Simulated scan of single mutants.
Amino acid sequence: MKTLTALFATAALALSANVALAKDVQPDEVVKLVNAKSIKSLDELKAAAIATHPGATVTDSELEDEYGRYIYKVELRDAQNVEWDVDLDAKTGEVLKDAQDT
């Protein structure tokens, strides 16, 4: 029983550590990253997200630092009123996730 308890405790700690490693990037830091060419401009990233669903509109977006990698997360609503979650690598613009919001 102790082994099982220890296993659950370890799993809980690992999950909470993963959450702590993903953080929102503040606006002043975004400007610095764009100016340093560390990430694409937010306009370029939004355009890349919209290109996955032409005609969609952006309902929300945020830049996160996940394990030292900048991920631009965009929520879209298409012409059929379907919501989409699109994640992009903020440095390259590569689409990492394109999934219908459930």
Rank of each mutant, 00 (worst) to 15 (best):
M1H: 03
T3F: 07
E83H: 10
L42V: 13
L96A: 00
L63H: 08
P54G: 15
E44Y: 11
V74C: 11
D87H: 05
D65A: 04
A49E: 09
L63K: 08
G55Q: 11
R69D: 10
A99C: 00
V86S: 00
D85A: 03
E29W: 00
A9M: 01
V58C: 14
T57H: 03
V74R: 10
V82E: 13
A79R: 15
V31E: 13
K23T: 12
L63Y: 08
P54N: 14
V25L: 00
L88H: 03
S41I: 10
I50Q: 15
V19N: 07
D28C: 00
G68W: 06
A20Q: 10
T52Y: 13
A49Y: 09
A56I: 14
A79F: 13
V82H: 12
V30A: 09
D24Y: 09
Y72I: 09
P54A: 14
T10M: 01
N18R: 06
A56M: 13
A9T: 05
A14Q: 00
M1T: 02
K46E: 15
V86P: 02
L88R: 02
L21E: 06
L4Q: 08
K73A: 04
G55H: 10
A49M: 07
A56C: 12
K40T: 12
A79Y: 13
D65C: 04
A56Y: 04
P54H: 14
A36P: 09
Y70E: 04
S16A: 07
A56N: 13
K40H: 13
I71V: 11
L42R: 15
E62S: 05
E62K: 11
R69Q: 10
A79K: 15
I71F: 06
T57P: 07
